[in-house]
Amino acid sequence: MRIAVIADIHGNDLALEAVLADIDRRGIREIVNLGDHLSGALNAGRTADILLSRADIACIAGNHDRWLLEKQPDAMGSWDRRAHAQLAAHHLDWLTQLPPTRLVAGSVFLCHGTPAADTTYWLDEPSGEGVMQLSPVERIEALAGGIDHPVLLCGHTHIARAVRLRDGRLVVNPGSVGSPAYDDDEPVPHKVETGTPHARYAVIERHGDRWDATFHLVDYDHMAMARLAESRGELDWARALATGWLS
Protein backbone atom coordinates (compact mmCIF):
# COMPACT_ATOMS: atom_id res chain seq x y z
CA MET A 1 0.00 0.00 0.00
CA ARG A 2 1.23 3.46 -0.93
CA ILE A 3 -0.29 6.73 0.33
CA ALA A 4 0.76 10.21 -0.81
CA VAL A 5 0.82 12.78 1.98
CA ILE A 6 0.42 16.51 1.37
CA ALA A 7 0.09 19.44 3.79
CA ASP A 8 0.30 23.20 4.14
CA ILE A 9 -0.71 24.21 0.62
CA HIS A 10 -1.46 27.77 1.79
CA GLY A 11 -3.29 28.83 -1.34
CA ASN A 12 -0.47 27.96 -3.74
CA ASP A 13 -2.54 26.54 -6.56
CA LEU A 14 0.35 26.07 -9.00
CA ALA A 15 2.35 24.08 -6.46
CA LEU A 16 -0.70 21.95 -5.66
CA GLU A 17 -1.30 21.19 -9.33
CA ALA A 18 2.33 20.16 -9.79
CA VAL A 19 2.30 17.89 -6.74
CA LEU A 20 -0.96 16.21 -7.73
CA ALA A 21 0.39 15.63 -11.24
CA ASP A 22 3.55 14.06 -9.80
CA ILE A 23 1.48 11.82 -7.52
CA ASP A 24 -0.74 10.76 -10.42
CA ARG A 25 2.34 10.08 -12.57
CA ARG A 26 3.58 7.67 -9.92
CA GLY A 27 0.26 5.82 -10.00
CA ILE A 28 -0.56 6.52 -6.35
CA ARG A 29 -4.31 6.42 -5.87
CA GLU A 30 -4.67 7.31 -2.20
CA ILE A 31 -3.87 10.86 -1.03
CA VAL A 32 -4.23 12.45 2.40
CA ASN A 33 -4.08 16.18 3.08
CA LEU A 34 -3.11 17.46 6.53
CA GLY A 35 -4.59 20.96 6.47
CA ASP A 36 -3.79 24.66 6.13
CA HIS A 37 -5.12 24.55 2.60
CA LEU A 38 -5.92 28.15 1.75
CA SER A 39 -4.49 30.91 3.95
CA GLY A 40 -1.72 33.04 2.49
CA ALA A 41 -0.89 35.67 -0.09
CA LEU A 42 -1.80 33.65 -3.18
CA ASN A 43 -4.87 32.03 -4.77
CA ALA A 44 -7.13 30.71 -2.02
CA GLY A 45 -10.28 30.42 -4.13
CA ARG A 46 -8.71 28.48 -6.98
CA THR A 47 -6.87 26.22 -4.53
CA ALA A 48 -10.19 25.45 -2.85
CA ASP A 49 -11.76 24.68 -6.24
CA ILE A 50 -8.98 22.19 -7.03
CA LEU A 51 -9.42 20.43 -3.70
CA LEU A 52 -13.21 20.33 -4.00
CA SER A 53 -12.82 18.69 -7.42
CA ARG A 54 -10.72 15.89 -5.89
CA ALA A 55 -13.15 14.01 -3.69
CA ASP A 56 -10.62 11.17 -3.53
CA ILE A 57 -8.34 13.18 -1.21
CA ALA A 58 -8.91 12.62 2.53
CA CYS A 59 -8.58 16.07 4.12
CA ILE A 60 -8.44 17.37 7.68
CA ALA A 61 -8.42 20.94 9.00
CA GLY A 62 -5.36 22.87 10.13
CA ASN A 63 -5.18 25.84 12.45
CA HIS A 64 -5.52 28.37 9.63
CA ASP A 65 -8.58 26.53 8.30
CA ARG A 66 -10.10 26.73 11.76
CA TRP A 67 -9.32 30.45 12.06
CA LEU A 68 -11.01 31.14 8.71
CA LEU A 69 -14.21 29.86 10.31
CA GLU A 70 -13.86 31.08 13.89
CA LYS A 71 -12.66 34.66 13.41
CA GLN A 72 -14.20 37.71 11.87
CA PRO A 73 -12.12 39.15 9.01
CA ASP A 74 -11.07 42.25 10.97
CA ALA A 75 -9.69 39.97 13.72
CA MET A 76 -7.78 37.69 11.34
CA GLY A 77 -4.09 37.71 10.63
CA SER A 78 -2.97 38.83 7.19
CA TRP A 79 -2.74 35.30 5.75
CA ASP A 80 -6.29 34.43 6.76
CA ARG A 81 -7.80 37.81 5.92
CA ARG A 82 -6.46 37.77 2.36
CA ALA A 83 -7.67 34.20 1.82
CA HIS A 84 -11.09 34.84 3.34
CA ALA A 85 -11.72 37.67 0.87
CA GLN A 86 -11.31 35.18 -2.00
CA LEU A 87 -13.58 32.45 -0.66
CA ALA A 88 -17.21 31.82 -1.54
CA ALA A 89 -19.79 30.37 0.82
CA HIS A 90 -19.39 26.85 -0.59
CA HIS A 91 -15.65 26.98 0.10
CA LEU A 92 -16.29 27.84 3.74
CA ASP A 93 -18.98 25.16 3.94
CA TRP A 94 -16.38 22.63 2.80
CA LEU A 95 -14.01 23.75 5.56
CA THR A 96 -16.71 23.25 8.20
CA GLN A 97 -16.92 19.58 7.23
CA LEU A 98 -13.24 18.83 7.81
CA PRO A 99 -12.35 17.03 11.06
CA PRO A 100 -9.26 17.99 13.10
CA THR A 101 -7.98 14.39 13.05
CA ARG A 102 -8.77 11.31 11.00
CA LEU A 103 -7.87 7.64 10.63
CA VAL A 104 -7.35 6.19 7.15
CA ALA A 105 -6.50 2.68 5.95
CA GLY A 106 -7.27 1.42 9.44
CA SER A 107 -3.81 2.30 10.78
CA VAL A 108 -2.70 5.75 9.57
CA PHE A 109 -3.51 8.64 11.93
CA LEU A 110 -3.80 12.17 10.53
CA CYS A 111 -3.42 15.42 12.46
CA HIS A 112 -2.16 18.89 11.62
CA GLY A 113 0.08 19.90 14.53
CA THR A 114 -0.09 17.16 17.16
CA PRO A 115 -2.92 14.77 18.04
CA ALA A 116 -4.05 17.18 20.77
CA ALA A 117 -3.40 20.64 19.28
CA ASP A 118 -3.29 22.07 15.77
CA THR A 119 -0.95 24.92 16.75
CA THR A 120 1.79 22.84 18.42
CA TYR A 121 4.94 21.89 16.55
CA TRP A 122 5.74 18.19 16.86
CA LEU A 123 8.89 16.87 15.19
CA ASP A 124 10.73 20.19 15.17
CA GLU A 125 10.72 23.18 17.53
CA PRO A 126 12.42 26.58 17.66
CA SER A 127 15.59 27.01 19.66
CA GLY A 128 16.19 30.02 21.85
CA GLU A 129 17.98 31.58 18.89
CA GLY A 130 14.88 31.23 16.73
CA VAL A 131 16.24 28.40 14.59
CA MET A 132 14.15 25.28 14.00
CA GLN A 133 15.69 22.04 15.21
CA LEU A 134 14.72 18.40 15.68
CA SER A 135 12.81 17.85 18.93
CA PRO A 136 14.12 15.36 21.50
CA VAL A 137 12.66 11.90 21.06
CA GLU A 138 11.21 12.06 24.58
CA ARG A 139 9.10 15.09 23.64
CA ILE A 140 8.00 13.54 20.35
CA GLU A 141 6.98 10.33 22.10
CA ALA A 142 5.12 12.21 24.84
CA LEU A 143 3.04 14.03 22.21
CA ALA A 144 2.27 10.67 20.58
CA GLY A 145 0.90 9.25 23.82
CA GLY A 146 -2.32 7.27 23.50
CA ILE A 147 -2.17 7.09 19.69
CA ASP A 148 -1.28 3.46 19.10
CA HIS A 149 -1.42 3.37 15.31
CA PRO A 150 1.78 2.45 13.45
CA VAL A 151 1.87 5.65 11.35
CA LEU A 152 1.22 9.17 12.63
CA LEU A 153 1.12 12.03 10.11
CA CYS A 154 1.46 15.73 10.89
CA GLY A 155 2.13 19.04 9.16
CA HIS A 156 2.30 22.60 10.50
CA THR A 157 6.10 23.13 10.61
CA HIS A 158 6.48 23.01 6.79
CA ILE A 159 9.65 20.93 7.37
CA ALA A 160 9.84 17.44 5.84
CA ARG A 161 10.81 14.99 8.55
CA ALA A 162 10.38 11.35 9.57
CA VAL A 163 11.06 10.04 13.07
CA ARG A 164 10.95 6.38 14.09
CA LEU A 165 9.82 6.13 17.71
CA ARG A 166 11.49 3.62 19.99
CA ASP A 167 8.39 1.39 19.92
CA GLY A 168 8.50 1.25 16.10
CA ARG A 169 5.79 3.81 15.27
CA LEU A 170 6.63 6.19 12.44
CA VAL A 171 5.84 9.92 12.62
CA VAL A 172 6.01 11.76 9.29
CA ASN A 173 5.72 15.41 8.30
CA PRO A 174 5.63 15.71 4.47
CA GLY A 175 6.78 19.33 4.37
CA SER A 176 4.80 22.12 2.74
CA VAL A 177 3.30 22.02 -0.72
CA GLY A 178 3.14 25.77 -1.11
CA SER A 179 5.01 27.76 1.58
CA PRO A 180 8.75 27.02 1.77
CA ALA A 181 9.63 29.68 4.35
CA TYR A 182 7.92 31.88 6.95
CA ASP A 183 8.44 33.47 10.33
CA ASP A 184 6.28 33.50 13.45
CA ASP A 185 6.28 34.86 16.99
CA GLU A 186 4.85 31.77 18.72
CA PRO A 187 5.98 30.02 20.86
CA VAL A 188 9.06 32.29 20.48
CA PRO A 189 10.15 34.43 17.51
CA HIS A 190 11.58 32.09 14.88
CA LYS A 191 12.08 31.44 11.17
CA VAL A 192 11.31 28.35 9.13
CA GLU A 193 13.41 28.18 5.96
CA THR A 194 13.65 25.08 3.77
CA GLY A 195 16.30 26.48 1.45
CA THR A 196 14.70 25.72 -1.92
CA PRO A 197 11.45 26.86 -3.59
CA HIS A 198 10.23 23.34 -4.40
CA ALA A 199 6.78 22.01 -3.59
CA ARG A 200 7.10 19.12 -1.18
CA TYR A 201 5.18 15.96 -0.33
CA ALA A 202 5.81 12.47 1.05
CA VAL A 203 4.83 8.92 0.21
CA ILE A 204 4.36 6.35 2.93
CA GLU A 205 4.47 2.68 2.00
CA ARG A 206 3.77 -0.52 3.92
CA HIS A 207 6.11 -3.48 3.60
CA GLY A 208 4.61 -6.28 5.65
CA ASP A 209 4.27 -4.91 9.18
CA ARG A 210 6.64 -2.00 8.60
CA TRP A 211 5.87 1.44 7.18
CA ASP A 212 8.51 3.63 5.54
CA ALA A 213 8.51 7.13 4.05
CA THR A 214 10.09 8.84 1.06
CA PHE A 215 10.17 12.58 0.40
CA HIS A 216 9.68 14.30 -2.94
CA LEU A 217 10.58 17.79 -4.17
CA VAL A 218 8.64 19.00 -7.20
CA ASP A 219 9.58 21.80 -9.58
CA TYR A 220 6.82 24.21 -10.61
CA ASP A 221 6.56 27.82 -11.79
CA HIS A 222 7.45 29.22 -8.38
CA MET A 223 8.54 32.54 -9.86
CA ALA A 224 5.02 33.15 -11.13
CA MET A 225 3.80 32.81 -7.56
CA ALA A 226 6.63 34.98 -6.25
CA ARG A 227 5.69 37.71 -8.72
CA LEU A 228 2.04 37.43 -7.65
CA ALA A 229 3.01 37.87 -3.98
CA GLU A 230 5.24 40.82 -4.85
CA SER A 231 2.43 42.49 -6.82
CA ARG A 232 0.32 42.32 -3.67
CA GLY A 233 3.01 43.89 -1.50
CA GLU A 234 3.82 40.59 0.26
CA LEU A 235 7.61 40.83 0.02
CA ASP A 236 8.39 38.11 2.60
CA TRP A 237 6.15 35.73 0.66
CA ALA A 238 7.83 36.74 -2.60
CA ARG A 239 11.33 36.03 -1.25
CA ALA A 240 10.25 32.74 0.28
CA LEU A 241 8.57 31.52 -2.89
CA ALA A 242 11.52 32.57 -5.07
CA THR A 243 14.28 31.07 -2.95
CA GLY A 244 13.08 29.03 0.04
CA TRP A 245 14.68 31.64 2.32
CA LEU A 246 13.37 34.78 3.99
CA SER A 247 16.57 36.81 3.55
Rank of each mutant, 00 (worst) to 15 (best):
T120R: 07
T101P: 07
E138N: 03
T120A: 06
P100T: 12
G106W: 14
E141S: 14
T119P: 05
P99S: 06
E141R: 03
M132E: 03
T119L: 04
S135D: 03
Y121R: 00
M132F: 11
T101R: 10
P150R: 10
P115A: 11
D148E: 15
S127D: 15
G146I: 06
D118L: 05
P100C: 04
V108H: 09
L123Q: 04
E138S: 07
F109T: 02
L143A: 03
A144Q: 06
L110V: 12
Y121H: 09
T101I: 07
R139L: 04
S127F: 13
L123G: 12
D148R: 10
A116F: 13
S107E: 15
V104R: 02
D148I: 02
V108A: 08
H149K: 14
S107A: 15
L103I: 15
V137N: 09
G106E: 10
R139N: 04
L143M: 11
S107K: 08
G146E: 09
P99V: 05
E129H: 15
T120P: 00
R102E: 08
R139T: 03
A144S: 15
A116P: 00
W122C: 02
H149E: 13
L143F: 02
L143E: 02
V131T: 14
G146V: 08
D118F: 09
E141L: 01
I140W: 02
L103E: 06
F109L: 05
A105G: 10
L103M: 06
D118M: 09
T101D: 05
L123T: 07
D118H: 13
G113H: 10
H112V: 09
